[in-house]
Design a protein around this nucleic acid. Sequence first.
DNA 1: GTACAAAATCTAAGCGCTTAGAAAGACTAA
DNA 2: TTAGTCTTTCTAAGCGCTTAGATTTTGTAC
Lengths: 378, 378
Amino acid sequence: MAKAVTVYDVAKRAGVSIATVSMTFRRPERVKASTREIVHAAARALRYVPSASARGLADGRTGALGLFSYDYLVRVEAAAPAGGGPGAGVDPAPPSTVAVEREGPDERCREFPLYVDEIQHGMELACLEHGYALMIGGPSHVSPSTTIADIAGRVDGLAVFPQTLPTEALERIAGRIPVVAVSEPPCDDRLSHVTVDNRGGTRAITEHLIHEHGRRNLIFVGGLNPAEQRARFSGFQDALRAARLRVPRKPLVPPTRVTGTGRSAIELPAGFPLPEAIVCATDDVALDVLDILADRGVDVPGRVAVTGFDGIAAGRIVRPALTTVRQPMIEMGQAVVDILRGRIEDPDRPPEVRELPVRVVLRESCGCRPRAGIWRAG
Amino acid sequence: MAKAVTVYDVAKRAGVSIATVSMTFRRPERVKASTREIVHAAARALRYVPSASARGLADGRTGALGLFSYDYLVRVEAAAPAGGGPGAGVDPAPPSTVAVEREGPDERCREFPLYVDEIQHGMELACLEHGYALMIGGPSHVSPSTTIADIAGRVDGLAVFPQTLPTEALERIAGRIPVVAVSEPPCDDRLSHVTVDNRGGTRAITEHLIHEHGRRNLIFVGGLNPAEQRARFSGFQDALRAARLRVPRKPLVPPTRVTGTGRSAIELPAGFPLPEAIVCATDDVALDVLDILADRGVDVPGRVAVTGFDGIAAGRIVRPALTTVRQPMIEMGQAVVDILRGRIEDPDRPPEVRELPVRVVLRESCGCRPRAGIWRAG
DNA sequence: GTACAAAATCTAAGCGCTTAGAAAGACTAA
DNA sequence: TTAGTCTTTCTAAGCGCTTAGATTTTGTAC
């Protein structure tokens, strides 16, 4: 790689000062057309590429937004060849021979795209639309402690998923650049938040189970910890209460184990008494439940109805297709960017909390019938 | 937002020089433990976040890799509320009411994750694994011409999809940082390339159609332009030639129109004579073909078999599920990062071309039977 | 040709960090 | 005590760019 070409080189070749070179790129209209042409020619000839670091340092903005995402670490491991089964790793066959196979069990499609990926995608779209670059980072084993500051230092605004960063680090970063958390706001903090109607969504899907499918004996599985999941449980309680059914105090939180491919899945005790419906805190939990019930030969939705929450892509693929509460993930990502942009423009604007609506998507696992012609779109 | 805290502030508060502050973060082992503690305390108290721009400028590396992706522009538009149908935009219902609906036709799931998204995902995983941040950009309407240099200037290495950047721009950037193109290499250029066995893959899937399903009258649809698609057509020809069937000179490239949601889809003339099998240049084309055949009431795979190429997620969801040639997209993303890292470490290393193997994935659209229990994984 | 305003360009001072190499301290051995 | 050796810290010189404000050029009106 050749030594980096700088404004100085371009200026010399064009016979102007470095200020003029800079002006030519930042505010072309202030430079005489003929000069502009000369400078561009010089830049082209020298293959000049301006250094964003220098610019960022000089004008105090980077032109990028950041996303600090979680669970990547886990997925790095899961994506590594796990030995066994097709689809687990890189094909060792000689390149000249093309492997041919039926599609078998493949957990990987359950790992991408996930909830976080779709939100990220929304951010990508919005960033591009507004001329920002998107910088993606996450907790890394290479420099576990540095990364936070590292990524925070190179963007003008940062989005984080809950529980990716210690509160102290967040506060620290939020003191320097705008930060929005993709999560329910706790009682109070200095951050902006983008969240959804977790409670209302779960209430609605639970009521659907009760009123449209006549289920009276329902349980809620998973999710004791994150605020969102607690809110969802409340929605479940709301629905039972309104229907005058028995209201449990706590969700059922089954233990988890690690599957062959490194994913952690929930477990249900063998003698588990089956309810008429299982409302799950997340799609991920629901998919596990579906697996377990299939293993035991339980008819879903005939004997037990199952629902999820999130609306991840895998829920459409599974049979029976998963009825769920879909979060508007793309829009959430866009909202994140929107808030960030606002606060970058006006640093004094106070943190903002934006709650987006959800929608219940009826598929097969609740007992609704599939709709024909899904793919006749256009 | 408070005024930015710098090394100077931390140094003053800790009673040391800025060099010591810097050392404390970059090479902690060279600083006396007690000093280190004092500096950290000061940094914490002041909420110091180091500026990556300054660091990048000073040491000449940014610690980030870039991906210049395409078609985002198109997708930004497609994602905008298109007016009509559920799922087209943001739900206008009042936040307190949760919408409940059956899942209807929804083209959006065909837009994400796409081929590029999965490669990007592979890059994300690899970047995180090696302590790099990933910077994502693409052609933007905001500053169409600037962006290239903009993103090139802030990363240590760049990946690009074909036809995202004019060759001249690529050469320019490649003169400053390592660049790898995710595409078949043209006769020669100064870039590294990551690609797959396009020709062999198509040959294999075509031979499957011929030998396992007895199809003798096959056509190839789509893809005249990009090098990859041309290579795939060659593979198609190879298979026909080997089977002593009539070998067409050119692929069929149908005109395209724009659908209601802004996506562009191919069209087949009404009186189109049906072959026994349609080998498509990409999954995207294959999904269009499936739509068209469904519209006309043609039995797939009974009357006509259809295959794709890529292995995008939507191909599993569609009915009949799409038989295709799957590219190892995650691995490709990882290979990209791998090459980039190598060339960053050793700038004199010559550009590298890496071809990864593909695999034929048999699903329903070729006439193979679905396999039971896909979801009983774990 | 002169006076003055507007346009174009330049000079110079940072932006916040890293890192040689110099200086100062702390120990050790004689 | 003194010289010699590490270890720790500091001084100072950039890194490549932006941008006030100064200076020069150009254009206009008389």
